[in-house]
């Protein structure tokens, strides 16, 4: 049997300055946190942790998979160099949808219309329009690039 002290894993302390700074940070966070959690502690805690998990375990994997599908799909048809022309407009359009989802999806239609006196159904159309412009512009740039490449290619190459 080994002596007891050898079986225990060693815990190192790390930088004491870092520990002090973190202690001060936690003290302030706790002071504000008590007030943040005062009304609906479970709901707020759920949002705080849930948003981090939602981002790290859902949103990030989702757009990573989507991006790999674009790169892989274009690679399969030997057009890997077209990647940015699909990736950029898709990402920008997705970002706009993410930020303005409540308005675009129409989930706040009634409240928005009665509160502001503005039309609520314009956002989906505007988002689709912006998306169309993004993809259209991208397609135009790609077409120009393909054409330029064809002009510069020596006739013997093919």
């Amino acid at each position: 049997m080994l002596p007891r002290r050898l079986t225990r894993p060693r815990i190192t302390l790390g930088s004491p300055v870092q520990l002090l700074l973190l202690a001060a940070s936690f003290a302030l966070a706790a002071y504000a946190g008590v007030r943040l959690l005062a009304d609906d502690w479970f709901g707020v805690a759920l949002w705080f942790v849930g948003l981090a998990l939602l981002h790290d375990l859902v949103l990030l994997p989702l757009y990573t998979i989507a991006d790999r599908a674009i790169v892989g799909g274009l690679g399969a048809v030997r057009r890997r160099e077209w990647t940015p022309y699909v990736r950029v407009p898709a990402a920008l359009s997705g970002l706009l949808l993410l930020v303005w989802f409540p308005l675009i999806s129409g989930r706040v239609d009634r409240r928005y219309r009665t509160a502001t006196g503005l039309q609520a159904d314009v956002f989906l159309a505007r988002w689709l329009l912006v998306t169309a412009v993004l993809f259209g512009g991208s397609a135009l740039l790609l077409a120009l690039r393909v054409r330029r490449a064809a002009q510069h290619r020596p006739p013997a190459a093919r």
Binding site: L28, A29, Y31, A32, G33, R35, L36, A38, D39, D40, G43, V44, L46, W47, F48
Partner: peptide, 15 residues
């Protein structure tokens, strides 16, 4: 969000 915007956004900002 779970509560009134002002306290959530203000105290959340401090945390």
């Amino acid at each position: 969000f779970p509560g009134s915007f002002y306290p959530l956004h203000f105290y959340g900002a401090w945390v």
